[in-house]
Design a protein around this nucleic acid. Structure first.
Length: 853
RNA sequence: GCCCGCGUGGUGGAACGGUAGACACAGGAGACUUAAAAUCUCUAGGCCCUAGGCCGUGCCGGUUCGAAUCCGGCCGCGGGCACCA
């Protein structure tokens, strides 16, 4: 009998699938279609065990759907533009293009041996001119429909390198290379008008029934719809054109508790004052230090500057409030001006305490005391509170009711109006970098900003660029910028900004439906294949990528590139966890710096780690995100070389639920491999078995049908770990069964089929061994016989006061009162009752009996 | 700082509000073997001497006949915060 040899069988079956074009998708109306997609990878160099897990999940779905009679589209590509390619070019002198395509070659070469059922004929990289040229066409159509515009926006500016930095290139407020203090600087940038769709993007979340609730919550909070009052304070002695300052507040009910007016350092008034007041200029300059992230702004020390100017309170013109410039007020949100109410807001409370401004309550708890000077009173808006300085509605009311009443009152008084605002900002797509899709517009002295003609697309990136100095190579290229104005034909200059790589990933799923089309999409193909039936990817993309894709799908509908039904392009979403691995380290006694050990340098004894080299004890950090610098990255290629692809696939799906992180352990991989070898051995035995049918057959076949049922349910509901647990159990049953050869062969073939989405190579081999017809990949998925699933008797636990004390075995459909009688006659119950009668008996049919004493 | 998750034996984890710990790893005992590997069988949350009982799902409280599960508060860890992808 032969052994389980993955290195022999895996290439064999991969060749067989290629030969039969098993996974090449083509349109045909005779079967329902199914589009399964995993978020495509960034070509970082080598595939990661996390990729293996992600793509294996998608592959399980794809193979399962294929065997349930679907026309499956399961494509793969690369999200190939982005900063790491430029960083590599800066570090080691190559070209981003060479680096990227060489990485793609490597990664494809690593993915193929894993046996994923992918349609490789559709593969593309977003840096292919064929792809980004179509993206430029899409951009021009969006420009034409008014979905793109230019405005000023702040960027991280490195004053030493004279270049724009990405957020991740800013460390503790300093540029990562120069170490210079980063400043926020305004540049003219291109924007997508995603905010026009705020309301729609929010309300349509309700239609996404098969998306995780947490993702929808995150998106809803991100879009951040709020209702509030917008009104103006009139100023006292302010510069010309600033006699009124518009503010937006979500708490107009606290208007009588206002202590100051706060404006953003980027507010027009601040900018006006800055011009001839050096103190204001110095303060605003101070505020502009640091990075652009919300995190940096929110966690920075709250600073304010008293302008000396005041505004009049709208309800009492003799009441004047000081105008402060404050570093925590964002120009992007609302009107860039707020009124501060320290009694009911922690930040305002801190601010007023710091600058000695009055703290006046507008409401207090319905009962009890509150020292408002010491601590702000910030109840939720659904709680009832007692208004001490209310001006609308009841004295005791909820915050929500008070807000509604306040808006109505103010509108009646002619003080502002109720408005709905969103937190969502327009999507800035300009990047001052080389390795991205060029924005296809031209700057002409006479005609202004002019779109490039479609027949001139793609606007290709030049190859002759260098990365020896900071900044955008397109800016300093000797000739690339020079072109003719598409409108008047005079010499003009190309736009040198390229697109955010999120643009590339916002429509690739649509492109996969017709990857070689001469237009961004082919409507007939999109109509057939869209939407993505199952999208799989990391939770880290919960907001930006998924929101931008939802926006793009709508924009592509408006520009005629996608049908109406694609406005929500992902029918179902699954967010998978990471693959983690322990970190082994110890501090170097000389330098005190941590030294990281590779798993193969580590010896494990009684759960403790020691260096193989010198036997010294090591610290273990369990379940850490894999990171090259921590030496805890597991290379899938090494796993394949040792155990084969099926072992890697089986392992990443077992144990942990897919949405949770899974820890890679050598022991776990070893165990997975042993199990697969065992399945092979059992199948080989069964193939040679020659035993007559007997009374054990039915028990085995019953278990087989239960396995079909449970495994199928696991696959359908992303419970792959549950499917695998069931498969372990069924393997044990089969191994121990004394049933006849025919029944055991049927069971073994079914086992192979149930395993085939996870371990396709082994399954094909077992299938062939047992005389299965054709490829198991094409064999119809087994269907559980309902009659075989029904149990005649059930075991009911008996609880006394909620604690399990006994169990009884009863016929499945025994009436409640008979179960009750049986329970009461149970020894444990009789003993516990000790002659008394129970207070209550709860019988949940088929589940449990609880006797309350 | 803000938003969203997660927390169960030595380990990964299972469990429609209904027998907590399925399945697996590591461990223990045994079979086979000259021996080892491989394989197979049994065992296994903790505590108490056992019958049996007590304690146990990060911590504190609540709802319920019954809570890992629902609610409130805390602690710890992770993801995101608009130029990492």
């Amino acid at each position: 009998m032969s052994r389980y040899e993955p290195s022999v069988i895996e290439p064999k079956w991969q060749a067989a699938w290629d030969e039969a074009k098993t996974f090449e998708a083509s349109r045909s109306e005779d079967k329902p279609k199914y589009y399964v997609l995993e978020m495509f990878p960034y070509p970082s160099g080598r595939i990661h065990i996390g990729h293996v897990r992600n793509y294996t999940m998608g592959d399980v779905i794809a193979r399962y759907k294929l065997s349930t009679g679907h026309n499956v589209l399961h494509p793969m590509g690369f999200d190939a533009f982005g900063m790491p390619a430029e960083n590599a070019a800066m570090a080691s002198g190559g070209h981003p293009k060479d680096w990227t395509y060489s990485n793609i070659d490597t990664m494809v070469g690593q993915m193929k041996p894993l046996g994923f059922g992918l349609d490789w004929s559709r593969m593309f990289a977003t840096c292919d001119p064929e792809y980004y040229g179509q993206q430029q066409a899409l951009f021009l159509d969006m420009l034409d429909k008014g979905l793109v515009y230019r405005k000023n926006a702040v960027v991280n500016w490195d004053p030493v390198d004279m270049t724009v930095l990405a957020n991740e290139q800013v460390e503790d407020g300093r540029g990562w290379r120069s170490g210079a203090l980063v400043e926020r600087r305004e540049l003219t940038q291109w924007f997508f008008k995603i905010s026009d769709m705020s309301d729609e993007l929010l309300s349509a979340l309700d239609t996404l029934d098969d998306w995780p609730a947490k993702v929808k919550t995150m998106q809803a909070n991100w879009i951040g719809r709020s209702r509030g009052l917008q009104f103006a304070f009139s100023t006292v002695d302010a510069p010309e054109a600033f006699d009124r300052i518009e503010v937006y507040t979500t708490r107009p009910d606290t208007l009588m508790g206002a202590s100051f007016l706060g404006i953003s350092p980027d507010h027009p008034l601040a900018k006006a004052l800055e011009k001839d007041n050096p103190e204001v200029a110095a303060f605003c300059a101070e505020c502009r230090k640091g990075g652009t992230t919300e995190e940096a702004i929110e966690t920075a020390e709250k600073l304010g500057f008293d302008t000396g100017l005041t505004v009049r309170h709208p309800f009492d013109t003799s009441w004047e409030l000081p105008i402060y410039i404050a570093n925590f007020i964002l120009m992007d949100y609302g009107t860039g001006a707020i009124f501060g109410c320290p009694a009911h807001d922690q930040r305002d409370h801190d601010f007023c305490t710091k600058y000695g401004l009055p703290i006046v309550d507008t409401f207090l708890p319905v009962e009890g005391d509150w020292d408002i000077q010491k601590e702000p009173f910030v109840p939720t808006k659904v709680e009832k509170v007692r208004y001490t300085r209310g001006f609308a509605g009841d004295e005791v009311q909820t915050g929500n009711d008070a807000i509604d009443a306040a808006i109505a009152f103010c509108e009646g008084q002619g003080v502002g109006q109720g408005v709905t605002k969103f937190r969502l900002r327009d999507w800035g797509l300009s990047r001052q970098r080389y390795w991205g899709c060029p924005i296809p517009v031209v700057h002409c002295d006479d005609c202004g900003v002019v779109p490039e003609k479609k027949e001139n697309l793609p606007v290709r990136l030049p190859d002759d660029v260098s990365f020896d100095v900071p900044g955008n190579p397109l800016d300093r290229h000797p000739t690339w910028r020079d072109c003719a104005c598409p409108s008047c034909g005079k010499p003009a200059k190309r736009e040198t900004d390229t697109m955010d790589t999120f643009v590339d990933s916002s429509w690739y799923f649509a492109r996969f439906t017709a990857p070689r089309a001469g237009t961004p999409t082919d409507l007939a193909d999109a109509e057939y294949w869209m939407n993505v039936d199952q999208y799989i990817g990391g939770i880290e993309h919960a907001i930006l990528h998924l929101l931008y894709s939802r926006f793009f799908a709508r924009a592509m509908n408006i520009t005629g590139h996608l049908p109406e039904k694609c406005k929500e392009p992902f029918n179902a979403l699954f967010t998978q966890g990471m693959v983690t691995h322990a970190i082994y380290k110890r501090d170097d006694p000389q330098t005190g710096r941590p030294v990281y050990f590779y798993p193969e340098q580590v010896e494990l004894k009684d759960g403790k780690a020691f260096s193989k080299e010198d036997g010294g004890a090591l610290d273990t950090i369990p379940s850490a995100k894999m990171s090259k610098s921590k030496n805890n990255v597991v290379d899938p290629m090494a796993i394949i070389a040792t155990y084969g692809a099926d072992t890697a696939r089986w392992f990443v799906l077992s144990d942990s639920p897919p949405e949770r992180d899974v820890e890679w352990t050598a022991a776990g991989a070893e165990a997975a491999n042993k199990h697969l070898a065992r399945v092979y051995r059992i199948a080989a035995e069964v193939a040679e078995l020659d035993a007559p049918a007997n009374d054990q057959d039915e028990a085995l076949l019953r278990e087989m049908h239960k396995a079909i049922h449970d495994v199928t349910q696991g696959v359908e509901s992303f419970g792959f770990n549950a499917s695998i647990a069931k498969l372990y159990g069924f393997t044990n049953t089969l191994s121990k069964s004394k049933a006849g050869a025919a029944a055991k062969r049927e069971a073994a073939k079914t086992l192979a089929q149930l395993m085939s989405p996870m371990t396709p190579h082994l399954s094909e081999e077992v299938w062939a061994l047992l005389g299965g017809e054709g490829l198991i990949a094409n064999a119809p998925w087994p269907v559980a016989d309902e009659a075989m699933l029904v149990e005649d008797t059930v075991t009911l636990p008996i609880q006394i006061n909620g604690k399990r004390r006994a169990e009884i075995s009863v016929p499945k459909d025994m009436p409640k009162d008979e179960v009750e009688k049986l329970a009461l006659s149970n020894d444990a119950v009789v003993k516990a009752l000790d002659g008394a009668s129970p207070k209550k008996i709860i019988v949940v049919p088929g589940r449990i009996v609880n006797v309350v004493i």
